[in-house]
């Protein structure tokens, strides 16, 4: 199966550590952090394909974190994890671009499947963007320099 990188954000140490451990056993490249603030810091330094984000955390909560994440890394797919499902917070999350919304306790293999789907979506999305860029370049070859400049900054 294809490789992808996962960030787990949850304030409960027990839960997060077990979770990271079990995902690693399933050949995933996983990191875990304990807060929304920390997660955003990590995003500045590392690239992830999928993020598992607990909705209820002290400090910056899940929805807030999600909003920031989506501005920083719009292509990363986020799966919200919650112990207290409510349509309200669920829809808010989905509106902000979360991939899905999973109830705790989640069956780890089911969650694996969800992450895969999220990753598939991300890959498709990136592919689309790449195609669009190629098309643009075909029309205006000179743009290649602008793009190089953009990527350089």
């Amino acid at each position: 199966m294809e490789e992808f990188r996962v960030l787990v954000v949850d304030d409960e140490d027990d839960f997060r550590e077990t979770f990271v451990n079990r995902l690693q056993r399933r050949n995933l490249d996983v990191d875990g952090v304990e807060s929304g603030e920390k997660a955003l810091e990590w995003l500045d330094k590392h690239l992830y394909d999928v993020c598992i984000l607990d909705v209820k955390m002290p400090g910056m909560d899940g929805v807030e974190t999600l909003r920031e994440m989506k501005t920083k890394r719009p292509l990363m797919e986020v799966i919200m994890l919650t112990g207290h499902a409510s349509v309200e917070s669920g829809i808010e999350g989905m509106k902000l671009g979360a991939f899905d919304y999973i109830m705790k306790p989640a069956d780890i293999d089911e969650l694996m499947e969800k992450m895969r789907q999220a990753h598939e979506k991300k890959t498709l999305h990136e592919e689309k963007i790449r195609q669009a860029k190629i098309k643009e370049l075909e029309g205006h070859p000179a743009r290649v320099f602008e793009q190089i400049r953009e990527e350089g900054t």
């Binding site: 199966m1 079990r22 056993r25 399933r26 050949n27 780890i108 293999d109 895969r116």
Partner: peptide
């Protein structure tokens, strides 16, 4: 089956 634990979907 994964070698260590769990199962996964494969194409």
């Amino acid at each position: 089956c994964f070698p260590e634990e769990g199962v996964c979907r494969m194409a």
